Computed example of a mutant assay.
Amino acid sequence: MKKNGILNSHISEVLSRLGHTDTIVIADCGLPIPEETIRIDLSLNLGTPSFIETLQVVLADMAVEKVTLAHEIKELNPEVEDQVTNLVNGVPIDYITHEELKVLSKQAKAVIRTGEATPYANIILHAGVIF
């Protein structure tokens, strides 16, 4: 049995296969996920697990060089935006429209769906390198 890090085997596998600049998405429960994209569905009920809780766990196990958020989060979910900004701790943040985020999500190696039920709680994580 794994002792440290992410216990979810699907997330662990996706992270171990990422190369520099590959992306994954952590999404609220409403983001459309294309059929061809790997879906890791963690949602249990509304709010569980939360977007922030999931992001914290993934950030602890993934080298991230940049993140992408929707512009709309600034006005419609500023609490979550503030939490994200604190969690990424200086990692550059790009802002695009929510529609653009949905298009870019199609290129992600996987989308991790949470139970989050607040607006625009979606993030694209761009893989960095550890050397």
Rank of each mutant, 00 (worst) to 15 (best):
L31R: 05
I93L: 07
D22P: 09
V80H: 00
I33Y: 02
E72Q: 10
A70V: 11
D41I: 04
A108V: 01
V84F: 01
Y95G: 00
E81A: 06
L55G: 03
D61T: 11
D82F: 03
V25K: 04
R39K: 11
V91D: 00
N77K: 11
N45W: 06
I73D: 00
L101S: 02
A63N: 06
T68W: 11
E35R: 14
T68V: 05
I73Q: 00
N45I: 03
F51E: 02
D22F: 03
E53L: 11
A27T: 01
Y95Q: 01
T23D: 01
A108P: 06
D22A: 08
N45Y: 05
P92A: 03
G47A: 08
K106A: 05
V25L: 10
P34T: 07
L59T: 02
T54M: 01
Q56N: 15
L31K: 05
T23Y: 05
K106T: 07
N86G: 07
Y95R: 03
G30W: 07
V67A: 01
T23R: 05
H98I: 08
N86K: 13
Y95C: 02
N89T: 09
E36F: 08
N77Q: 09
L101T: 00
G30V: 06
A110H: 01
P78A: 12
S43L: 12
G47L: 04
V80D: 05
I24F: 07
L46N: 14
M62A: 09
P92H: 13
V91L: 12
T37G: 09
V80I: 13
T54L: 04
T21D: 13
V84N: 00
I52A: 08
L31Q: 08
E75L: 15
H98F: 06
I33A: 00
Q56S: 13
T23E: 07
E53Y: 06
S105N: 06
D28N: 07
L104Y: 13
K109Q: 08
E36L: 15
E75G: 09
L46K: 10
P78C: 05
I33L: 03
Q107C: 13
V57H: 14
T85R: 12
D94Y: 14
V103T: 09
G47R: 03
A70W: 03
L55E: 01
I52F: 00
D94E: 11
E75H: 13
L42S: 04
K66M: 14
S50V: 07
E53N: 12
V80C: 13
C29G: 14
P34K: 14
L101R: 11
R39F: 11
E35M: 12
S50Q: 04
K109S: 11
T23P: 04
N77D: 08
K109F: 06
V91Y: 03
I33V: 06
D61L: 14
I38K: 09
K66A: 04
E53W: 09
V64N: 00
L101V: 03
K102G: 01
L44V: 11
N89W: 13
S50N: 08
S105E: 02
E35D: 14
V25P: 04
T37K: 12
L76H: 15
P34N: 12
G47K: 01
V64D: 01
E75Q: 09
V67S: 00
E99N: 11
